[in-house]
Amino acid sequence: MKNKILYSAILLFVAVMLAGCQEVKRIDTANDDGKQVLALDYRDFDQVASEMVQSMLASGALKKEDGSRYVVAISEIINATTQRFNTDRLMAKIEEDLMNSGQVVITSAVGNKIARDDMVHDIRDVRKSEYEDEFKEGTLAEEKQLIAPGLSISGMIFQKELAYDKDKTQVEYYFQLKITELASGLRFWQKELIIGKRGKNY
């Protein structure tokens, strides 16, 4: 009888402990003191976006002499890492800050698949189609209204893995971005950032 009570108590204790382990904690993304991981996490993208934006703004490459704003297209940003992520995780932050700086406008008419808004073209396809009459006159986008971009941002993210010692791997992530003036083809700005991590093998 005594043993049965003891076993029940132990079982209850283990159950309570296990229930406690399943607790989900929300990450404080503004002040995350959580441990680093070998893969790229949001803190890495935050850091890279911040340093890239500050470098772009500090360079003066985005400032037009006449005070007007450049129209910027987001070209291909290639993810050549072994991790599957959308490069918009980086570019969305950069685009937001660039637009808020008041120096540039970003176009959705042209650019990579994520940056482009297909509706810009879909609505033009309505012109002279059988659906044209469905729209109120004068509300459809007219021809020659799109603004061509003056600058383009392109880049690449790739990684290199090295054996650091018997049970540790060194992973180097390279973030490269460049801004090209489309009329002249000249490169106005470029930057490479490296995030390196060492940790136990995957």
Partner: peptide, 9 residues
């Protein structure tokens, strides 16, 4: 508000 205001090393 800015995406650039993050912890930097």
């Amino acid at each position: 508000e800015s995406k650039a205001s993050v912890w930097l090393p």
